[in-house]
Design a protein around this nucleic acid. Structure first.
Lengths: 190, 190
DNA sequence: TATCTCATGTAATACGTTACATGATTGC
DNA sequence: GCAATCATGTAACGTATTACATGAGATA
């Protein structure tokens, strides 16, 4: 984990914090359980695990199987546990352009304290509420100012940009509503 | 554009199809108008434009300004126009993991024929409706099967995974609804 | 007078994708 | 008998991020 730990390393760390697995298994779990992020190639998982084991975050034991490829069953080390829990507990810095950054941390939040989790959710929610207000007040304004010069049908262009704008706005609304609902659920049920 | 044209190249091409701009301007337009995708660094835009001009897709004229940095005003070439329109008209292959791929093409659709645009939207909508059915029928099933071994609180984990699942589902629902609404608008108003 | 915006870029590094390589087992 | 799944990886290539480098004009 040379420098800034990237999200794949944390996903692998997080999954290994739940149970030891082979690289192949990790890939499958990502596909079926983490599932809403773009699938990562196995050819990227293997070298990443290798790097992480060199960094002492994970370790593996070999299971030899006559004829077939050996199994490398990875598990998380104490150092890995440490780093992962630190990452989970870090103050949440909402990413203006992506919702999945937070969602991913949330996926692994069972390893996190309820108090800190609630803090994370509230930070995210506050940020999105402000963003929502700003996005709503944007409507025709900026779009009109960006009128293209070499254009066939200006009316058509503006209509399409408005629909595109609706796309962004509705996703933000859905996300905010989801955050409100998980805040309530975590408060009451966890 | 060595091989598979990537999306940044198409964004730049699309914006230049609307009006000539400097690299700096393109960056700003991406930030304020395309806006819902992660911002691209200027240090990536400059070499990309250079590559594209070497490939004959764009060209620029120099505007010298005493003291200050020269302006490079890029515009799209006939070859660039061609490639861009081909890209826009290409059959739509919905990306299971990302909604912004289609949304981005839609942003530039004013340069596209209404008939083809409607086809694109219908393809996308059909795909998402199926995906929605599959995602809905997933609920507790897979999640339970993935029960972690080394776990403190299984109940908590499953609840969090269910909320995470709701996140994915609700985004898909919002997206599908948005597609239905733009289908109607394009049919009736464009 | 200091910060922000305008305007261009290079270099180093890290990350991700695609193609390639191998081979046994399981299910149809 | 054939395809999909299991299970491991390497190599080449392309793309994106971060840091570095420069400097004028506008705004507070």
């Amino acid at each position: 984990m040379a420098q800034g730990p990237n999200s794949l390393e944390f996903i692998l760390l997080g999954l290994l914090a739940l149970r030891p697995s082979t690289g192949y298994d990790l890939k499958k779990t990502m596909d079926v359980s983490v599932r809403y992020i773009s699938p990562v190639a196995l050819s990227q998982i293997y070298p990443t695990l290798k790097r992480m084991s060199q960094a002492g975050l994970v370790e593996y034991r070999l299971v030899e199987r006559s004829g077939r490829a050996d199994l490398k069953i990875y598990s998380i080390t104490a150092a890995g546990q440490d780093l992962f829990r630190k990452w989970l507990a870090e103050p949440n810095k909402p990413d203006p352009y992506r919702f999945d950054t937070f969602a991913l941390r949330f996926y692994f939040s069972s390893l996190l304290d309820k108090t800190i989790l609630l803090e994370h959710i509230r930070t995210e929610l506050d940020f999105r509420r402000t963003q929502l207000i700003n996005t709503r007040s944007l409507d025709g304004t900026v779009l009109g100012a960006l009128a293209p010069i070499e254009i066939i049908d200006m009316n058509k262009t503006v209509k399409i940009w408005q629909m595109y704008h609706q796309y962004g706005l509705q996703f933000l609304e859905t996300y905010t509503t989801w955050l409100e609902s998980i805040l309530k659920t975590v408060e009451e049920e966890l």
